[in-house]
Amino acid sequence: MISHKIDKTVTCTIVGDGMVGKSQICKTFIGDLTIEDYEATVTNEYSVLTQFMGDKYTLRIIDSSGQHDYKDIRTVSYKESEAFILCYNLSDRDSFESIETFWIPEIRKLCKKTPVILVATGKDLHDDNENNNVSKEEHLSVMDKYGIDAYVECSSYNKDEVNEVFEDVLLSVIKSKKKRRSNILHHLLAR
C-alpha cells in the first residue's frame, strides 16, 4: 500500500499571543506534569511518538514565542511546518483579535496552504465579564473567512482535550497530503 509509505513525521508549529497557554498545551500533551510556570518562551521543540488511526507518527511540535517581536525566530520553522496550531484564550479578547490582525497574515505570508487548527484555550476559566469572552459566532466567522480546518476548545491542562487538538492536527495533515496527491493525479490525468 502506497499510503503507508508516507512520511510519518509530522511537524507542527504552535502559535498565538503571549500567555494564552501554548507551552502548557505542549507540556500537557507530552505528559510533563510540573506545576504551572510563567516563563515566556523564546522557542522550544518537542518530539512525541503517538498513534493515530492505527499508524504510528512522530509528532514534532515547535513551541514558539507569542511575542510579536520574535518574528525572525518564529518564522524559521514555518516553512517546514505541515500544520499550525493557532491559539487564543477564550477570556482574552485581544488574543482572539490578534488572530485576524497578526497571526493569519504572518502564517499566510509564508505558507499559503498549510492547514491551520484554531484552538481556544482557557475553557475552564471563562471570564465573568461577558465583553471579554469570545462568542461562537465570532470564531465560526473567522474560520470561514480564512479557511481554517478545525476548531477545538480546550483547557490547556486537560489531557483529553489537548489530545483532541493533536488528533485534529494529524487528521488535517493527512487530509491535505491526500488532497495534494489527488491534485497531482488529476493534473497528470488531465494531460
Binding site: A40, Q67, D69, D72
Partner: peptide
C-alpha cells in the same frame, strides 16, 4: 527578570539583518 528580558530583549537591540536563535539568547 528572565521574563522581562525575553519580552524586552529583542526591542532593546537587534542586528541590521535577520536575528537568529543563538544571538537572540
Amino acid at each position: 527578570t528572565l521574563n522581562l528580558a525575553i519580552v524586552f530583549g529583542p526591542n532593546l537591540l537587534w542586528p541590521k539583518g535577520q536575528a537568529n536563535l543563538s544571538t537572540i539568547g
